[in-house]
Structures are given as C-alpha cells and as structure tokens.
Design a protein around this nucleic acid. Structure first.
Lengths: 730, 730
DNA sequence: GTCTTTGTCACCTAAGTGGAAACC
DNA sequence: ACGGTTTCCACTTAGGTGACAAAG
C-alpha cells in the first residue's frame, strides 16, 4: 500500500482502428449524427485564458458562449471549453520563419525540426479530445532559391493527398492534453509517394506548406467525422519543403538548434566548412528548453528533445537564439543566429534570407514582396518585439501600437504584433469530410505501424478521386462507409474503405484486409486547387487561412513598421473565440472546407495578401462547426468576444509579466525569461475575426460588435479578410 | 488517386485513461455489467488454427463452440474466436530455459531479453481485444545460485504488487493483433519499489517468475473488469530475477543473442574475459530472426529487434542457437552456445546450468528435482526434438509418444513433448478483480508518460491493502470506483482511484489529479500467498498454472525420456479450447483467481510438480470466464475439442512441414528452417485440460470425452492436475 | 568473508542530422 | 552544365547490455 511505486506512463491513446476508419469516412450527411442546427450557445468559461484551471465554470459561461459569437455547438455534451493553443518554441520558429523555413524531405521521411509542438489550455478537463495535425500547401506556387532568396518558379505541382495525422494519444481528456505540450514528432515529411510507413506526409519539394493543428472534442475516433474541428494555424510554421537545404542560414540555424546536428557545429572538431562560427554563443538554445520539459511531451516521442542541461528556462527569452534575434543586431542577417560569417553575403539585411517567402504565386520575383515586408536592413529586429518569445509578456505588450492599417497588401490584421491573434474556424467534421480529413494518419509507436491489416505492407490511402468522383460523395460509397461507422462497435479493422465501393483504384493496395491507416478523404486546398474541383463542392479553392494570414501579416508589418515584419504570421497562442458554423459548407461555405483542407492562396489572393510582416503573425484559429444552418453571427457575441479577449489578454500578460490587465505596457526584455519558465507559460491569445462577412472571403462570420472595449494595445483585426470594414476591432 | 502512398502505421491503441482507470477498478459485483450466466455458447470457428483467415465462419461454429467444451461466454457480442497464441522465438526461450533463464533487474528497469512476444491467431477479425501481460511469482521460494546450479534458498520474500501491463495498442481488432507478433518490450523489470516510471514490474531478486499473457475481448478498457480473460502461460519463459547474472552460460547466451550486448561478443575486439568463444559460430542468431519480422512487432517497440540481415528464417531451425542446441553436442554444456570455453566447468551436462529450476520450494536442494528432470548428461538434447523450434512441425509429431504417465510428481501431462499443449482458463474479469488485475499498467510511448494527470510525477499504484482490506473489496471504495466506471463517458483523467475511497495510503501520490496509470487491484498469487488473503476470497493460494505446469513437465519428461526434458513447460503455441466459467470464483473457485493473479506453487505442490521436463512444455492457456454458474463441462464438448485439436494439429503440421495430418512423422531437422519462415508460422496447439474435475486442483472443468479420436501423436493430457483420471486424453 | 546490490563504464543498437558526392 | 535528388557518411542523442569495481 505504501508503495504505489509505479507511475505508469499510460498512453491513453484510444485509437481503435475501427474508430479511425469511421472517422475517415467522408460523411456527407451533415445532419447525420449532428445536433439540430442552431443548438444555441452552450456555456463556456470566458477566462480559461491564463490557466486552464482558473476558470469560473458557470459564472461567465453564458457570456463566454456569446463571446464565441455563435452557437456553441459542442452538441454532444455540455462541455465547457475554450481551447487556447500556444506554439511551443515560437521564438525558434520565428527565427526560422524570418529566414524562410526549410524542411528537408527524404525518401525515408524526415522530422520537422523546429518540432511542431503546442501547449493547450482551456479544454474541458473531463471531455475527451482528439488532436490532429496536417500539413497543407500554403499556396500553389513552386519555388526556387535563387540569389539567396526564395522566388516563385511557377505553378505548383500537383499535391499528393495530405494525410491527417491523429495524435497517437487521442482520444484523451482535456486534462491530459493540457498536462504537457502536445508534440507531433512522429509525423515525418517525405517526398516518397510510395511511402509505406505511417506518420509520413508526402510533400512536393520546393513547395511551400503550412502545418495545421486541430482540436476535436470527441471521445472516439469514430465520431471524428461528425465532430467539430477547431483548427489552429501558426503562420510562423510555414516552410518550404526541400530535398537539400538551400539557405545556408537555415542550415546553420538547424545545426545550432537541433541536437542531432551537433556534429556539425563549429566546436573545433574539424567540422565541415561552410557556415562557421555562429554556433558557439548560442549553443544549447532550443535544446535547453526542451530539457526543461523533458518527458512532458507527448506524441510517443522518445527522441524529440535531446538531453542536456535541464534548467535553462525554455522560454525564448532564455534561449540564446531568442536573445540574439532580439538583442543581437551584430549580424547582418535578421535575427538569425549571430553567425558572423555568413557565407552567401546574405548578411546584409536587405535582400537577404530574411524575406524568404515574400513572393506569391504570381511568378513575380519574391523581391517585390520581400521588400515590402522587409523594410529595414540589417539585423533589423529593430523592433525588439519582433523576436520576442511567443511566451514573453513583452511581445504582447509591445504591440499596443495602433491597430494598424488594413491595407490589402500590407496593412493586415494587427492583432497586436506579437500577441498572436488566433483565427478560429469551427467546422463540423461531417463537413470536413469533403475538405477536412484528407486522410487520417494514426500515429503508431516508434514509427512502427502496429496494426497494419494489410500485413504491414501496402498503405490504405484513398485518393480524393477515389473516394468521391466529382461531387459524387454520397454516390461514391461513402454511404457504405458511413453505414459501417454507424455501428457502435463497428470494427474498422477489416473494413476496406476505398476499395469496396470506389472500385480498385489503388485504394486497397496490396494487403488483404483493407485498413484505414490514413483515410484519404478529399484533400481540398492542396488538391482542390491543383485538381479539378470535386463536383460543385469546392467552389472556392482559396482558403480563409491564407487570406487571413495575408491580411494579418500586412497589418502587422504596417502597424509595427518593423523591418523584419516580413512574416505573414507570427502568433504563438490562439484561443477559440469565434465559431463559424458554415452548416451549408459544401456549397455555400466551401471556403471553410478549403481552408481546412488546403489553406491555399490563389494567385490573385496571394498578391493581395502581400508578402508578410514577420512581426505580428496571428495564429489562425479556425473553428469549423456544422450543425447550425445559419451563418449569421450574433453581434452581442462579438462584443462579448472582445471583452473576453481583453480579459484574457490581461490574464495572460499578468501571467507572463505579472502585469495583469496592462497590455499597453511594453515589457522589457527581462520579462521574456520569466515568461517562459519551464513550459512557455506566457500564453496569450487574441481573437481575430472578420466583422464584415460580406466583405471578406471567409465564410459568413459575425459582424463586429457595436462597441468594442478592447484595450488599444490589443487590436482585433479580421484575419479572415483584408477588405473587411471592421478590419480593426479595437 | 493512384497514389495511396501513405501507409499509416496507425496506432489503434485506445487507452483513454478513464478506461484504464475503470478497468482497474476491482469489480466485486460479478453480475454488474455481465451478461446472465450461462449465456450459452456462441459459435466459434473450429479451424482458425492454421491461418486466421482460413476459417469457416458458420460451418463449424456450433462444433467449435462445443469443442471449447463450455459455454462460449463472450456475452457481449457474437464473436467467433478461438485464440491461438504462439510464443515467438520459442527456441531461444528454450535455450535459456534449459540453462535456467535469468533476467536482470535494475533500479531503472531492465527489459526482458528474450523479448516476450507472441503471435496470435484465431481472433475474431472485427472484435476488439485488449492484450495484457503480467509477471507473477512462479513459486514461493527464494533461490541462490550455488555450484553452478540454482538451489532453493528458503521461502520467498514478500512480493510487491504485480502490475498488469496493458499492451499500448489495446484495444484493437483481432485482425490488427493477428497482423504481426505482439511484443511487450516496454515492460521492464525492476527491483526498485519506488519505481516512478511506468512499464516497470517490481520483482524480487533471486526469485522465480512466470510471465503471463492475457487476451480479453473488450472494446474498451473500461470493460476490462467485466470481461473474460484468457490467460496463456509459456512455461519456457519462466525466469529467475537477478541483479547480476549468476550463470555464465546465461550471460553468454544473452551476449550472443542480444544485439545490445554485441560489444561483449568475442569478436577479437578485446572483449572482457569470462565466457569466451561460445559466440562466434552462433553469431546473429536471434537477431536475424528479428530482422525478418522487423517492423511487424507491436508494443511501441522501436528497438525490440535489432537490425541486420533480414533474410534468415526466423524460426529456431534457422537460428544457430537452435541448431546448436539440437545438433551440437560438441560443447559440454547443454545446447547452450557452442562456446568451447566454459569457465565454470558447468559444461558437463549433469550438474550444470541445464537444470536451473528443478528445485521447488521445499528447501530441498535443487539437485533432487533437477536430477529428476535432467536425466541425461552433457549436451543431451539427445532428443533432437527437445530443441526443436516451437514452430517446426517436427516437434509436434515427435510427441506422438504415449500419453505418458500421470503420476503426481513426475508423470505430468505429456501433451506432446514439443507440441505445446495450451492450458486455457477462462475467467471473468469481474473476478479477476480480486485476483487478476493486480494492477493495470498502461504502457506509454517511449516510456514517456504522456498523460500523467499527476503532472508526470507520482505514480498511482494501489497496493492490495489499499484497495481492499482483508476481504473488504466492496467496502473499500470499489463501489465508488465502479460507479465512476459505469459512466459511459467517464473520464478517468482526474479520477483519483485510490485516494478518494481508500484513504491517502499513498495511492494518489503527488500530482494533482489522481490517475490510474496502473491500477493496483489485488495481486493474488504474488501477494496472496505472501500476504494475508483478503477475506475468504482466496482460499487457494496455489495456482492452476503451477500445478498444470508441474504435471505437464512431469509427463513430458517421462514421455520423452529426454535428458534435457527438465523444464516444466516448453510449449510455444496455445489455443483456447476449454473454457472454465468459474462464476462463483470468489469463493468456490478461488484458484482461478489465484492463478490469474499469482500462479504460485505451494511448497508441497512444487514438490509434486517435480522439476520439469525441458522437452514437452505445454503452454498453459487459462481461459477465465465468469457468467456461468455451473462448472460442469459437457462431455461432448470435450470430444469435439479433441477432434478439433487433431484437425488443428494436422493443419499446423501441414503448414509447417507440409505434412498435414501426419503428426506421427518425426520431422528431420530440415523442417525447422522451413517451419519458421518469416514469422514463425509453424503454429501448433494442443488443448490440455483435465477431464476429471474432481481429481485436480483446478476449478471444475469438463470431464474427458467418452471417445477420443485424437491422433496418437498428439496426446492430450490434463495440464491442470496431475491426478486426473483422464490425464491422457489421447 | 560471502553474497548481493549498486554505479560506472565501454560498447552496442536505433535513429535523427547535415555534408558531400554521386546521380539524374 | 545546371538544378534538384539520392546516397552514403560521420556525427549526434537516446538508450540497451554486461563487465567490473565498489558498496552494502
């Protein structure tokens, strides 16, 4: 009795393949298992903000519900949640983003280096959630790295179906998910279209991608198709897939921060030539952070964080990288590593790697856009804020600057430069079927596909065309699948998703029993643009995200005026505030689907979006929700939303810099370190939504509240559209 | 569409901690969520034997049901299953077992080396199963290694609560489980009673243990407590826990076969002294096998099987070790590695490590028993069969020998020397509560406790005394727990299992929300014997397993007369045939519980069991089933059982050696290689049950069928008792 | 003093990393 | 020749293994 020595690291992952399969089923019957539309808002704690446990359950539920601006959905149970997602190691991501993040893809699959890891708050402790991640094309351009910068090199190649990676621990309770950062280490990037392993996402080299994170409240993967997806996009995680690094600065940054690349650090060990001495001063930057949280990450990661010192504050403030970026202007490059010896002469701020992705698909040289977003030369980061850690209170405060302009190209949403304005789109899973669940990838342990019905051989991936002919979702065989799903105890184990009804289009592959390791539904964005739209289902290939991102970046850059504010998005924390219920999504609100599936920017939109502001990159939180016929938002909700946001900001700032409620105060750098003690506590969120549904490309969203009490320091801009009347909420 | 490149290694593991928690709840209300007793047998395919996919669903269901000999239970659904479990790398296990397997336990936890891995067949493809494993005391003796042999050194020390390790992929469909071998690599052995990690089982050094494997058909861990457990025991996996290796031969065998110990192989690299040149000839034995199946193992094992050549037949036949054991009599030692330079002179067969565990608890020197089981000196394995791979048809055929004697001490069950006669005891989970689920250990990924409500800190382990005072199950707070469990969506995340109701006995530990990483229910055997029985629940500390093992070993040795037949059990394949439904277990059939939880042999019984025959070690398959009031078996069922067995054997033999139906033929060594191509296909099973319930210590079981058509080559003996009238069924 | 346990160590597997050259 | 891809390499982290010496 006095024992209880065991401390089991339970893996609550509850992924019955059957569930998985079912989840993958593209459900085209929105009402199938959904609650009646317009259920009405359910109570949601408004102040989950700071700490998940600090909310008042019933007190402000109603308010919160309104804040969300729409029917709270969550038909299933009466759950009080208001997820707030914070990107871990945001500062690191920012550093990469400024240079133009590159991710190597290999045949065998490569991890993302700045590991995609998020910290979640505001979930209902008891409710079960399924967390997912996917990577979708950021646009439809092909890129090339020329003259030390990324340039558009034509139209994108066709995208392979993107897989929806289900966090292996799903489903798990909110408490469990909030206990520690949620990592997706098992997800690997590959260019091998015949990928046999799981956990791999097929990308096109020299194309730009955007990782996305999804939260679904569901206690069973079987319910995934009928559940609401809350999608979070961290623009700073955008990257170009490459087979070999193009930008030496990126290489050096990777070497300096990825423990597995220590062998390439200039420690006098006769390392390779090339990028030389950037390392020393910043050694053990990201790594130290990881140490702190060691053992706390999920995603079956045994190797995510390297070993080493475990006491350094993991917050960006503590990390040398961050420091460098913010304080070091010694180097010519943007806050990249202090590396004194940049090889390619990109050291100079202007044309340097700092404007990696400025170019959009219009085939116009990136320089134009880059220049736009890369105002100041040299280290820039002139705005110390620019490099502020995602968790530091400072970043939030700094952006008290004006709401910013909302010019189409540059004046995006200035949801506080560094305060991460989340753009949340809530979508019903039933709808994500056509656009959301491109394919579900259930991560196994150690990359070891445990239950491969196909004898661990051929993957069961469904191509969009397979599953659904042009607009032939119901006709495809989805009904068949859905039927199966309906069964409570239905086992997907041997259920052949695509083969049976869709014909032998290669879905089943070898193996005997068809198995839905990763169900390939339609991959909207990534594929929608490049492939003929499926029937009339996806009229809008462009995704909200992209638009929002563009708007946000534009506004951010203008608002901050920081030279480095080239990046479209830089937010680190998001919190669901606004929920769109594009019940009619398939036709009337296709964008939502698009966004979820692809997040593509059309050429024209790309241009509109402008390059980007690296400074204020709002996290786009897309909360997709079905079950509600109307898209008309409640103005009151919006207002409440703003109020909530303000309070949240205060809470956050208080949390981070002990400056509760004073977002205006520009916290000195000192805060940074404090902010991110061990787990990057400094969570901040902002709700970014478009008050003028008519003027934006986004699905109908609630109009801006009449009166906005939002503090000036935290401007609420619509990230969903750039032409919105109420671009600035504050 | 033509893509389907993704091949996700989904991890169907569905372990919502809530479920886990619930499962851990000691349910003392058998009828709580159970179907009415005597539900009646449900159809079960009789010939799942060879291949899981080769069965005739309806055709022989009825027959199968009868074969099973009892009410099929499986109240939930009408599932057709007849699990057949084969121990992977049986030959390796055999080699170790002959020497007296030792497993190092360390403070940080040590893996088992011959990894405990099983191949499963006969499951219902669609049904969900939860697979578990635990390690229980094999007897109540303490051992010491003296004069190159293991000797009893007194009574056993008190056992720590044993944890029930739930395979991380649970629950998963039968199809998934059968797709590849199921490994339990994450399970670690430790002597650290304050174990903070999960996946660790606390053992006492110098004590003997027996791993057990459990199959539970349940789609949710929450249902575990109310589900039927089918327990499989592979006697050859018995081992002595040590902090340092005692037998140099074991050390060498480990070094030669464990890829992680390659550094100690005598490859001229100036290895340490000690055991010298056994290695060379056998290099890459087990490892090669592993390679073949690489990527097929489950249990989140990233490192289970080493890399290397991937073409060698993994069957024991192909492995040098096996070869050696069987064919090599060059070395003095039993079939240990051919190592010519054995240091301790144990090379000589007689007193050597070959008779490791012959001694039982009677404090009598092991020699007596060892002598009994270790008839021949030297390499012995005179009986080529002895070392036959578990999967080779040969072994099965060989034992066509006479049924053997059933003398209490030595004349055990001769269920064919090498044909692995499974002893299956089916027990209702509701009952395992008192004795079965000592503690549930949910394996996490990479030993990284993902969802630790206690902030990944203190383990939540319940000591028996905590959860239940002497016979105070219901009074403890179990009701409370059960109640929680009843909730469908109940989240265990924050549920404090032990703390709330049982008082702060240390169950909750630090952390905030109590979490059931491993629920400690009652740990019967291991603890039952050493601790005061809980109320009157466990009148029989001795477990069937032990008894059966003893009987089996005894018979085996006598039947084969092989000098090496010292090991009590050597079977590698089991298949549920007989199902006991000790509905009244708590009181009337406590043994079942005991078996499940502890599998302890009383001193007297130990002696009765005799040492062992290394040759014919039947797999004990214990199928614990509640829900049936009567224990009276149907004779007809038994008969059918035999028939089925025969057909199965034929199938198996045919599968292995292409000699379908000719069990009598003693296959030459050549078969071996064939038998275990890639995954050790050569599955063979035998049902071992006691036809005379009255004469055996086992719970009431069906009487032997009047007429037995079992082929002479496959003797069916009762492994459950040695005094059974129908000890020999064939 | 004997037996057992503990900690450190060298050595190994497994796998992540970027470089460099080969490849196409 | 050029640009992108592939392969192999050395190096790293992470962790498994038994030997060995030092404790207990």
């Amino acid at each position: 009795m006095a024992y209880h020595p065991f401390h089991h690291a339970h893996r609550p992952t509850d992924f019955p393949m059957s569930a998985f399969l079912a989840a993958a089923q593209p459900s085209f019957f929105p009402a199938l298992s959904l609650p009646p539309p317009g259920l009405g808002s359910k109570p949601l704690p408004p102040e989950l903000s700071a700490e998940a446990g600090a909310l008042h359950p019933a007190l402000s539920h109603h308010q919160a519900a309104h804040l969300r601006g729409l029917k709270s959905l969550e038909p299933d149970e009466e759950v009080d949640d208001d997820p707030k997602v914070t990107l871990e190691a945001k500062d690191l991501w920012d550093q990469f983003h400024k240079l133009g993040t590159e991710m190597v893809i290999t045949k065998s699959g490569r991890r993302m280096f700045p590991p995609f890891k998020v910290r979640i708050n505001g979930l209902d402790k008891k409710a079960k959630y399924i967390l997912l991640m996917d990577i979708v094309a950021a646009d439809d351009c092909r890129y090339k790295f020329h003259n030390s910068r990324w340039m558009v090199a034509g139209k994108a190649d066709p995208e392979m179906p993107k897989r929806m990676y289900i966090h292996p621990d799903s489903p798990a309770t909110g408490e469990q998910w909030m206990a520690k950062p949620v990592a997706f280490h098992k997800l690997k990037l590959t260019n091998n279209i015949s990928d046999k392993h799981g956990f791999q996402t097929i990308l096109n080299s020299m194309h730009k991608y955007q990782p996305r994170f999804h939260i679904v409240r569901a206690n069973d993967i079987l319910k995934l198709p009928y559940s609401t997806f809350r999608t979070y996009v961290f623009p700073e995680t955008e990257f170009v897939a490459v087979t070999a690094y193009q930008n030496d600065k990126i290489t050096q940054l990777k070497i300096d921060n990825n423990p597995f690349a220590k062998g390439f650090r200039d420690t006098g060990n006769g390392r390779r030539e090339k990028r030389k001495q950037l390392t020393m001063p910043s050694l053990r930057l990201y790594e130290d952070q990881c140490k702190d949280r060691e053992g706390a990450d999920s995603d079956a990661s045994s190797s995510e964080t390297p070993a080493g010192a475990t006491h350094s504050p993991l917050g960006p403030g503590a990390s040398p990288l961050h420091f460098r970026a913010r304080d070091d202007k010694t180097c010519s490059d943007s806050d990249h590593d202090l590396d004194p010896h940049d090889l390619d002469g990109s050291t100079s701020p202007g044309p340097e790697p700092e404007s990696p992705f400025s170019a959009r698909c219009e085939d116009r040289p990136p320089t134009s856009s880059s220049s736009l977003s890369t105002p100041t030369p040299s280290l820039s980061t002139s705005d110390s804020k620019k490099i502020h850690p995602a968790f530091s209170a400072r970043s939030l405060d700094k952006d008290k600057s004006k709401p910013s302009d909302h010019s189409d190209t540059s004046g995006g949403i200035s949801a506080s430069k560094e305060s991460f304005s989340p753009l949340m789109v809530q979508t019903e899973s039933a709808h994500f079927s056509p656009g959301h669940l491109q394919s579900l990838a259930l991560s196994g342990l150690h990359g070891q596909p445990f239950f491969n019905p196909l004898s661990a051989g051929s993957p069961l991936l469904f191509h969009p065309s397979q599953l659904m002919g042009p607009g032939a979702f119901s006709a495809m065989g989805m009904s068949h699948l859905l039927a199966s799903v309906s069964g409570a105890g239905l086992d997907a184990g041997s259920l052949s998703i695509g083969s049976p009804s869709t014909g032998g289009a290669g879905a089943g592959g070898a193996g005997g029993g068809a198995f839905p390791f990763h169900l390939q539904q339609h991959m909207l964005a990534s594929q929608g643009l490049h492939m003929p739209p499926f029937g009339g289902l996806f009229p809008y290939p462009y995704t909200y995200m992209a638009a929002a991102a563009a708007a946000a970046s534009a506004s951010a850059s203008s608002s901050t005026g920081s030279p480095l504010s080239r990046h479209p998005f830089l937010s680190s924390t998001t919190r669901p505030r606004l929920r769109f219920n594009p019940y009619q999504l398939p036709v009337s609100l296709p964008q939502t689907s698009s966004l979820l599936s692809g997040a593509l920017l059309s050429t024209s939109e790309c241009s509109k979006a402008g390059s980007s502001s690296r400074e204020a990159s709002p996290v786009l939180e897309l909360n997709h929700k079905l079950g509600h016929s109307g898209v008309s938002p409640k103005s009151s909700s919006l207002k409440d939303s703003v109020n909530e946001l303000q309070s949240i900001q205060r809470l956050v700032s208080g949390l981070e810099g002990q400056r509760g409620g004073s977002p205006t105060a520009d916290s000195p750098k000192g805060d940074r370190t404090q902010d991110r003690g061990e787990g990057g506590e400094g969570v901040r969120q902002q709700t970014v939504f478009c008050p003028d549904p008519g003027a934006c490309r986004l699905p109908p969203h609630p109009p801006p509240p009449p009166s906005l009490e939002t503090p000036p320091s935290s401007p609420l801009l619509c990230s969903l559209c750039d032409g919105c009347v109420n671009k600035e909420l504050r």
